[in-house]
Design a protein around this nucleic acid. Structure first.
Lengths: 201, 201
DNA sequence: GAAAAGAACGAACGGTCGTGCTATTTTCCG
DNA sequence: CGGAAAATAGCACGACCGTTCGTTCTTTTC
């Protein structure tokens, strides 16, 4: 086959299918717990068939991490962009983020990846840092717009507020996994109301 | 050897030595990444020699988790008990907790364990939940004393404040691992000052 | 329809995993 | 010092790991 283009080639399609299964497996076992044999059995393929789509296990893990990041952006950031700039959009981000947390009680690839790789070095560590820094940047951008719109105090430190928002979401995920989502969700919402209030102009 | 008691028997002593090495290894690789072979090489013993001290890998992991919990209590809670009850003690807990975070940038067994086991079931999951619930209980107890002493608002919800404190410490650990401890520490302290202020009577 | 390319398979490799079993060494008490 | 008991080593096992290689089946292109 040369480069002519039917609707969809077979290769990329199954690669996507594999990534979908891998994503689900990694949610429970983390990227470190993801094994090619288990993944192949889950997809219904041979080990070598799966392996051929990624040059190595590390490349597979990188691809799963990237897929997770794209999903997160599509589920949390993109829908919030339809809310008006400023505090409404910030609230929308948090809202969709909580929903993401509800759907990922069994584990979130992005979070487990930070726990798995923050102490080591290598391509995965770098990718995790880049992903986290990118998302934090988006968050701070939305905060900056809320400041510019006068919805938050003019002397708001975007990085500081971004940290506190992120910390609350970490708390949600942590407590949801251990003590149940409903209780954790209630406390998170209460904390956010206090947070918004204390940064309002 | 029967049950008579010299100063220290050999067995428990090397068991403790093994646990020390295992704890350090688990800080980096997590409890899931802890392997008996690597541990044995690290201690300078044979695999079977190490293995004999714990009936199984799972028992080893449980022992490491327990050792981590005892260390945490000894480093964070116990020293804070010498501060007077109420807000001073609460602040002391946070202070020693931050110090713990500084010494555990490369990874904390207790936190990685929650990430590794919160979605599964089994003895380790149960142990993690018990440990986390126990610590949260201690935290809420200290909060309750601060309320009783009039250092915090009388209508303070101890569980809610406990959640928010814990969330900030999660934020510290997260950001310290990814972006450096100093920056994360500054933001955590700033957040805590705001937090205390917003719950003061 | 022949030829070329792509995709998946199956078997095998060297390693490491956790876990048994049997010796051998070390420790401790009388 | 001697003998029981505890501690450690050595070895082997089956299972799984990531990876490589040659083969086969399917699809596309000429």
């Amino acid at each position: 086959m040369t480069a002519s283009a039917s609707a969809t080639a077979k290769g990329p399609a199954t690669r996507e299918l594999i990534l979908e299964h891998a994503y689900e497996l990694a949610r429970v076992g983390g990227l470190e717990g993801l094994s090619i044999g288990t993944l192949a059995a889950d997809v219904g393929m041979s080990k070598s068939g799966v392996f051929a789509h990624f040059g190595s296990r590390e490349d597979l893990q990188l691809a799963v991490l990237d897929a997770a990041a794209r999903r997160f952006m599509a589920k949390v950031l993109v829908p919030a962009l339809s809310a008006p700039r400023g505090l409404p959009r910030l609230r929308a981000i948090v809202e969709h983020w909580c929903e993401w947390g509800r759907e990922h009680q069994s584990g979130c690839v992005l979070l487990s990846a930070t726990a798995e790789y923050d102490g080591r070095e290598g391509a995965l560590h770098d990718a995790v840092v880049a992903q986290q820094a990118g998302w934090r940047g988006e968050l701070e951008k939305a905060i900056g717009q809320a400041v510019a719109a006068g919805h938050l105090r003019a002397d708001t430190d975007a990085a500081q507020l971004g940290f506190e928002i992120y910390a609350l979401m970490l708390g949600l995920h942590h407590d949801a996994g251990l003590f149940g989502f409903e209780q954790a969700s209630r406390r998170t919402r209460a904390a956010f109301e206090r947070l918004w209030r204390s940064w309002q102009p």
